[in-house]
Amino acid sequence: MHFRYKIEGGDFTNAGSTASAVKKVLKQLNIDPVIIKRTVVGIYEAEVNIVAHAYNGVIDVDIDENRIFARFEDAGPGIPDITKAMEEGYSTASEIVREMGFGAGMGLSNIKNNSDKLEIISQVGKGTTVEITNYFNSK
């Protein structure tokens, strides 16, 4: 099954609605709660990243019997140095983002720690694509 969600930059009121929708689907599919939690934590962080840093974005979620794949494609400033952005504590977030409880430089490392597979491709001045894959039978 496939789902598509549109995300607006700066829309903190609705940030997390995609992760919430995915969580409901995975629960209905009786996926292991531990795998559901790590999957939705990663999706939520990636969703918040679009809201916090990009102008807008699209999230595509594809679920089959073996895995969930989520692609986060945004139009935004891009990430000049992905390795540095992955470091815990490194952040370029605005004061507004920090007031929302995020922007402490934990997001990308949190996504990495909660993914079986993570790909990040970014072009400065254009945008960023993040791809997360989690397998349902992973340990």
Binding site: F12, G101, M106, N110, N113
Partner: peptide, 26 residues
Amino acid sequence: LMSDVLTVKQSNMLLITGLINVQAIR
């Protein structure tokens, strides 16, 4: 800091926070 909360794997816990917005609920 919600990203800190999201790193915790413990179940059956409650959250104490002074962050008052919908992201605390999310």
